[in-house]
Design a protein around this nucleic acid. Structure first.
Lengths: 233, 233
DNA sequence: CGAGCAGTTGAATGTTATCAACGCCGGTGG
DNA sequence: CCACCGGCGTTGATAACATTCAACTGCTCG
């Protein structure tokens, strides 16, 4: 039957969107299908807007491919990056429980594929799929830990240990030369300093033999021990 | 039967511990009983330690009565408050998914009653009680939002808008004169400044007619509009 | 190949931390 | 109940730090 076939095909597309995402990984085939049924894939070109501040949200967004930059505008027009979403990351979880207005903008920094699930669908899914609830709880717990760690980092008045702490955390899961998750001016705002200060502090670390900056967006940690010394704790 | 009676009595105690806590509130009587069965109440006197940094944790702690101060020690011995737990708040959710070592100390700032649930028990509960999963997800989402908001606050270089933003958030849910959730020296560290700076900035706000400091731990917001002006966004 | 923006460097200014001393409140012990 | 003691909080002066403003370099992308 033509119609039936088309329907199956479209489900296949959604399945692909779901299977690539860690929080759904431990689900069975049948369970993935039930998730896929309520999933709507969306696409965003590089530079495109996924959502804007001020919009009402009742949707969970999960990045499948590409990258999304989450930021909000300060009153002086200056952009403050909140988080960078890589494949598997998601945003909109607060919308699942309260009618919340987006406080931030989401912009694709590369060609990006996302999965969206409405609030009603997700709450229904959670009620019928306990493993999904656990996955989500785990993901939120990890994000919470990250956010709280960042808060304690930012509470450090001096810029150098603040930067060192950030780089230590960042380099912990990578090795050798690695990419910064955002531009240096975004990173500066993220770390609570000006781009000028970041530049100077990076040079300071470079002079001390702690690291080298490679090109525009890469950093190579040379002396992990020295970095740990400069970082808090 | 003597033994049976004793057993029921002890369950009653745990029920009391559970019913007082928001995340369990929407559960039915039967469900509360099943939660109570795996709950272990613990008590901490004022000044007592609930847990210490370095300990392995596989337990969720929920505050029932009293207050718990969560902090960790910087390398210079200086205490950094992460969060203050009031009745209904909980800590240890990360322990539910990974064998994690506590990074912080938990100290009772008043006579405190807590409920504890082991990892195994809670994961089992979540699998059988979907509403509980939703409650937990909601609570984590709220905490996440708070933590991310604090991070963006702390990213502000100037102390005055940082303090103003904090006070605005704090006063939003209260009215008139209200208590600060911690001592001023703790608050200063929490806001990424020195106690001296906090004192000066509070005085500055007082001079501007924005607020008044009452006694040692109370603040009265006089001009909400002015406070909002000084706060970011 | 050119334009524009990210990133760097430099000097001056402003803010904040630091160090030190002091009042003040709260709790403890006589 | 009162007096003492200790820490919290405040105030003042200095110095270090980061921001600011401005000019310049060097990518990168069109």
């Amino acid at each position: 039957m033509e119609h039936g076939h088309q329907h199956e095909h479209s489900i296949e597309r959604e399945r692909e969107c779901v299977t690539g995402v860690p929080i759904f990984q431990q689900l069975s085939d049948d369970q993935i299908t039930s998730v896929a049924k309520v999933t709507r894939p969306i696409h965003a070109d590089k530079g495109g807007t996924v959502f804007s501040a001020g919009e009402v949200s009742q949707t969970l967004y999960i990045v499948n491919q590409g990258q999304v930059r989450l930021y909000h505008l300060a009153d002086d027009g200056h952009e403050q990056v909140l988080r960078v979403l890589n494949p598997g990351d998601f945003v909109g979880e607060i919308a699942l429980f309260t009618d919340e207005i987006h406080g931030s903008y989401a912009e694709a920094t590369a060609t990006t594929e996302l999965c969206t699930i409405s609030r009603a669908s997700l709450t229904a899914l959670i009620k019928t799929l306990p493993p999904l609830a656990l996955s989500l709880l785990g993901a939120l717990a990890v994000r919470l830990k990250t956010a709280e760690k960042q808060a304690t980092l930012l509470a450090i008045p001096d810029a150098l240990p603040r930067l060192a702490g950030y780089l230590q955390e960042l380099s912990a899961h990578r090795t050798g030369t690695f990419d910064l998750p955002m531009s240096k001016q975004d990173l500066a705002a993220y770390l609570g300093m000006t781009p000028e200060s970041l530049s100077r502090k990076l040079k300071q670390l470079s002079t001390k033999g702690v690291l080298e900056t490679v090109g525009r967006r890469q950093v190579k940690v040379i002396n992990v021990a020295k970095l740990a010394e400069l970082a808090p704790e």
